[in-house]
């Protein structure tokens, strides 16, 4: 029972910290670009304001449009529930393995794209079309990286994978190195960051995710924004906890949990800095360069898989 309570708390922490992580990335980015950064609490204020605002629906909006924010937020929340954040002994982690996790994101994306097409503007269709194209290419790369991971650890359950990697200590594995690089690229593409998509733009030539949610307002928009931030955090936690699992709590004592929380915070901060540096250094790509970017991710994952088979087992 205690474990389940812990899982619930971790999930709440996920939700509560998601805007903070986005704010941190933004802050570092501002520093790097010589701009004045907004407060770290700004995303929370935005969300509160959006929740308070009135929802304006298009005359043309169908029930799908109204249900979508809840489904997106729900699926993302469920995804957060199965990712080990602070403690590796998560009872909820057994509910869904990493392939199901990909399934949750796919479900959210499916509805997001449908909602984009619901109102019947050109923008929405454009965003949906681009989003589905990019995700179609990102999915095999992601699963290939996941397969590499699963073959190394003989499991697709996140808890087991992390346990295995922890028990093994520091081992330099080419396969994991490439899987990490591949997952980083996939994560950037899936969370719609530069250079694949720019979350800050509303320029019709370049926008992908924003084009789909153009018609949303009020609490609907708040939910979607929150889910986007949550998704970014989930990818971040996945990457730091799988590839650098040291510090995560292996037993649920208060002391271990506190230490783990500190370590995870630190790791996420570092990752946030890296992300911000990447977004500052790189320019947004042309849409038809994105396939090349994702083919790179796929190649990396493939090399990871092959080097696992050739170098590590044979």
């Amino acid at each position: 029972m205690n474990d389940w309570l812990l899982a619930l708390i971790e999930m709440a922490l996920f939700v509560a910290l998601a805007p903070l992580f986005s704010a941190w990335v933004k802050r570092v980015k501002c520093w790097l670009q010589n701009r004045r950064a907004p407060s770290l609490l700004q995303p929370y204020r935005d969300l509160r304001r959006l929740f308070a605002k009135q929802v304006v629906l298009s005359h043309n909006a169908s029930p799908v449009f109204r249900a979508t924010p809840y489904i997106i937020a729900g699926a993302t929340l469920l995804a957060a529930a199965v990712v080990p954040f602070i403690s590796v002994n998560l009872p909820t982690a057994a509910i869904a393995d990493v392939i199901v996790l990909a399934g949750f994101f796919a479900l959210a994306r499916f509805f997001q794209a449908l909602a984009g097409m619901d109102v019947g503007t050109a923008f929405g269709g454009m965003g949906s079309s681009r989003e589905m194209t990019i995700s179609a290419l990102a999915e095999p790369a992601m699963l290939m990286a996941v397969f590499t991971l699963a073959m190394v650890a003989h499991s697709t359950n996140l808890s087991t994978v992390i346990d295995y990697l922890l028990a093994q200590g520091l081992v330099l594995r080419p396969s994991l190195l490439f899987a990490l690089l591949s997952l980083l690229l996939v994560g950037i593409a899936e969370t719609g960051r530069i250079p694949v998509d720019n979350p800050a733009t509303h320029l019709e030539l370049t926008m992908i995710h924003e084009a789909m949610i153009l018609e949303y307002s009020g609490r609907h928009l708040a939910l979607i924004e929150w889910a986007v931030q949550l998704k970014l955090l989930i990818y971040g936690v996945l990457i730091v906890n799988i590839f650098f699992p040291w510090g995560i709590a292996t037993h649920n004592s208060l002391h271990a949990l506190a230490v783990a929380a500190g370590v995870v915070f630190f790791k996420l901060m570092v990752l946030g800095v890296l992300l911000a540096v990447g977004e500052t250094v790189l320019a947004k790509m042309r849409l038809f360069r994105v396939p090349a970017f994702l083919v790179l991710a796929l190649t990396l994952a493939l090399i990871g898989l092959l080097s696992h088979i050739i170098l590590e087992v044979g």
């Binding site: 093994q168 081992v171 330099l172 080419p174 396969s175 090399i303 990871g304 080097s307 170098l311 590590e312």
Partner: peptide
């Protein structure tokens, strides 16, 4: 098997994979 090797030998293998990547 890989885990039993010393770290620099693991590094050789990793570098080999990176050569392939290049």
């Amino acid at each position: 098997m890989l885990e039993q090797l010393p770290l620099y030998e693991q590094a050789i293998l990793t570098l080999a994979a990176m050569v392939m990547f290049t």
